[in-house]
């Protein structure tokens, strides 16, 4: 074959690969939609697996609690410390509590919680369900007349959707404690005075937006982790891919959702 012919073959191959990739993308988009629809179809129809939902809530909370406590506190502390010099230039250190509260309550608390949960909870759900898939435990549930989707997926997604907003609220609180530590060490501000300044700039919309954001993030982390694990294949390699895919996809989607929700909140402000 001459060079031109080689090039044509290569381009054709590349084109067909590209076509395949585009096709694969739309197929997986369709599959994820079906997965989400199935969740809504099954999650709110009896019998409810309340005990398992509670167990999963506990698992999600306990798994992330320590890391979230430490990270939330450090984020609050560092953010306050780093913001101080800029405000000092204008003699506006007294605005620090307000600045910290806006940053933490509006953006940092839900986002930091979601990112940590993506890593801790998302990967764990992906790996757990992935390993259950490759060891045929999900098939075993199916052939014994039970509903594995309801028991494994619905419970986990509900658990992350319920627990992550609670964790985000907690992250906000420990973040403020971190901020307070810095402010109190430098200005000697009392806790009461600090908290008064914290709540002053916040509107009801901020709390609602933050809550909605955390619910969306929680749902995303749960559904992505479950989708990756529930549909994993190819043995142990598939389990690794499911765990990894759960983290990467959830983190990516969390950022996209953050941008969209921030834009939407702007319309109500």
């Amino acid at each position: 074959m001459d060079t031109a012919e080689n090039t044509t073959v290569a381009i054709r191959k590349k084109n067909s690969k590209l076509k395949q990739s585009v096709l694969d993308f739309f197929v997986s988009l369709y599959n994820i939609n079906q997965f989400i629809l199935r969740f809504f179809k099954e999650a709110f129809v009896p019998p409810f697996e309340l005990k398992e939902v509670m167990r999963q809530c506990y698992e999600v909370g306990v798994r992330s609690f320590t890391l979230i406590s430490v990270t939330g506190f450090i984020v609050g502390l560092i953010f306050t410390k780093q913001s101080r010099p800029s405000l000092s230039q204008f003699g506006a250190e007294s605005w620090l509590p307000s600045l910290v509260s806006i940053a933490i309550m509006r953006a940092l608390a839900p986002l930091v919680t979601a990112l940590i949960a993506s890593g801790k909870v998302g990967s764990s759900i992906g790996a757990e369900l992935g390993s259950m898939r490759v060891t045929e435990q999900i098939d075993a549930m199916e052939v014994s007349g039970t509903k594995p989707f309801k028991y494994l997926v619905c419970t986990r997604v509900l658990a992350t959707t319920i627990t992550i907003p609670i964790l985000a609220t907690y992250t906000g609180f420990v973040g403020l404690v971190g901020g307070y530590l810095n402010v109190s060490m430098n200005e000697g501000t009392s806790w009461t005075a600090f908290m008064e300044q914290v709540f002053e700039p916040l509107a009801f919309t901020d709390f609602v937006a933050s809550l909605v954001k955390s619910i969306v993030f929680g749902f995303t982390i749960g559904i992505v982790g479950c989708y990756q694990g529930y549909n994993s294949n190819k043995g142990t390699e598939g389990v690794g891919k499911a765990a990894n895919g759960a983290v990467v996809t959830a983190m990516f989607l969390v950022f996209i959702e953050e941008i969209i929700i921030v834009q939407m909140t702007g319309w109500f402000r």
Binding site: M132, T135, E136, Q137, D139, A140, M141, V143, S144
Partner: peptide, 11 residues
């Protein structure tokens, strides 16, 4: 009843 090759017990 379906008995799986690797037992598929819920671990």
């Amino acid at each position: 009843g379906f008995s799986f090759q690797n037992s598929a017990l819920y671990d």
